[in-house]
Design a protein around this nucleic acid. Sequence first.
DNA 1: TCCTATATTGGACTTTGTCCAAGTCAAGAT
DNA 2: ATCTTGACTTGGACAAAGTCCAATATAGGA
Lengths: 147, 147
Amino acid sequence: MSDLLRRLRERGWRLTAQRRVIAEVLDGEHVHFTADEVHARAVARLPEISRASVYNTLGELVALGEVIEVTTDGRAKRYDPNAHQPHQHLVCSGCGAMRDVRLAGDPLRALPEDERFGFVVSDVTVTYYGRCPECGAGDLREASGAD
Amino acid sequence: MSDLLRRLRERGWRLTAQRRVIAEVLDGEHVHFTADEVHARAVARLPEISRASVYNTLGELVALGEVIEVTTDGRAKRYDPNAHQPHQHLVCSGCGAMRDVRLAGDPLRALPEDERFGFVVSDVTVTYYGRCPECGAGDLREASGAD
DNA sequence: TCCTATATTGGACTTTGTCCAAGTCAAGAT
DNA sequence: ATCTTGACTTGGACAAAGTCCAATATAGGA
């Protein structure tokens, strides 16, 4: 059983076949599937699994901090199981493919060659998240480097 | 007439009432409306303007580099007319409100107090954009399975 | 004023995601 | 091993955001 499944069990999760399959799909490096991609891969192992269960489970994993939800373009969100190691993302503006990258030095400087994965990098954005004065404190996201 | 409209005319744009109204809506600082918000404000001045025209015009403004399209959460894209001055964004994870911020020093360090706009900042993301080896250079958006 | 390429429109359609009532099942209790 | 129960799953309806298209209107040059 994967580390993820063990941690989930320790947190009182009921280990259903659906959750097991989703956890299996989300195993590996540079995995950044959309919900539909997760569903397609889950169906290959458990044909009757529903889209709703995939959305439910992904949402729970995000809430638990086991998976990071990434929105880069205006299309489907992607789910990154590499939640326990701070990193940034390199995104293809053509097909949406993503890679995990680690920063060294000033983020606004060029990515090191060995972190480019063959991409031609053309842009970098920095976005801060928080709560505005009207919204106040609420379901805060976890910091991954912000003070 | 605004600077924006003058630049557009210089580029050969036909200055329709719809485009004029949209340009007026997109005037000011810290303006980050969604397409629907732009539409609502445009309708107040030109009741018969359609959603399609708002989407068309915003898309054209983005292609011309006069407006920046920002996707921060999984919700509607926002359109930032502050395209000629490099800056980053501060986003409320509650309501989606956005502020323009300027970096000083290491982006992963805390935002300076005077750039926080009363927000409680909890996270920062750095994302690089480019073209992956399969997509190569170019502007075409070809959907293919990511990864 | 006329002409016509360009722009606009409404509505159908797609993608992505949420919500819900009803049925199912994991796992602790017996 | 079986029972019980509340958490989990399901399919389908629904919603938000955005795209596409054929028909219509119009800005701006001739």
